[in-house]
Amino acid sequence: MSTMTFGRAINAGLRKAMEDDPKVLLMGEDIGKLGGVFRITDGLQKDFGAHRVIDTPLAEAAIMGTAVGLAYRGFRPVCEIQFDGFIYPGFDQIVCQVAKLHYRTQGRVKMPITIRVPFGGGIGSPEHHSESPEAYFTHTSGLRVVAVSNPQDAYTMIRQAIACDDPVLYFEPKRRYHTKGEVEEGGALSLAPSMESARTVAAGTDVTLVTYGPLVSTALDAATAAADDGVSIEVIDLRSLAPVDYAVVEASVRRTGRLVITHEAAQSGGLGAEIAASITERCFNFLEAAPVRVTGFDIPYPASKLEKHHLPDLDRILDGVDRALGRPNSQSGLEG
């Protein structure tokens, strides 16, 4: 067990995956000598060589498309998309090829491609550097989507993503890269919790608060603050966004009767809507109140001096909790 930053944990996980399997190779922009703009691949090219840590020309469609060809030949490419907002040139190859080739070929061709995406806001960047595009991918069959929230998961789940025979979008909360945590390195993946499993990170009895990625620590802060106010919040870190581990969410909601979902991504057509619908279908009779979403607004990502108004924070999450509990809140007196 050692203490390391979130970013370092991903680096260690990548290193372990490359040591374990010579077919694993990394591709991306500036990931070689520079170690990536966030230094996540720091030192890996030096240790594994330029043939396994490949600086590519600046073309995301080509990064994804050549990864498909490499997978056809039996490699396990790990592609770094430099920023969330830069993934769209590669969208066609991800959605039409990476996601569908296993189905198209009736299981004959596997696409064990991992796509690492630093995502989310809170770092004061210009446009295209703070987006949360996960719902585009959770809506695409054939892909698995995960979002990590702490260094240990970052380490273990990058290894699981790379070992998985399905393509995995691996979302990294860039504003948490410098958060430190304890990480147990090594260890057999077969003994780790399934990549598809959600985790209850704080037990509670009054309301179930579901989130993932960067907002997990905010949600935990909200639970601590609410406890002072006599409200007991159960916090669930989804970890997997496609598929969602509904068994864990459903079991919690059956106990609390109340559901709040929070994410940075825009509200309409988002993951919160999907979770609210699915949980309503599965345990409607256990719900004491309508599910509540606390999300980013349906806007293009705003200028950095405005992002604090866009991103759900502790107070907005608590306001959502109050709505679920029928306590006085910002929407009191409004219909619906």
Binding site: M64, T66, V68, G69, L70, Y72
Partner: peptide, 8 residues
């Protein structure tokens, strides 16, 4: 692109 990746 797939051919290029395969060739890589």
């Amino acid at each position: 692109l797939h051919a290029t990746g395969y060739a890589l």
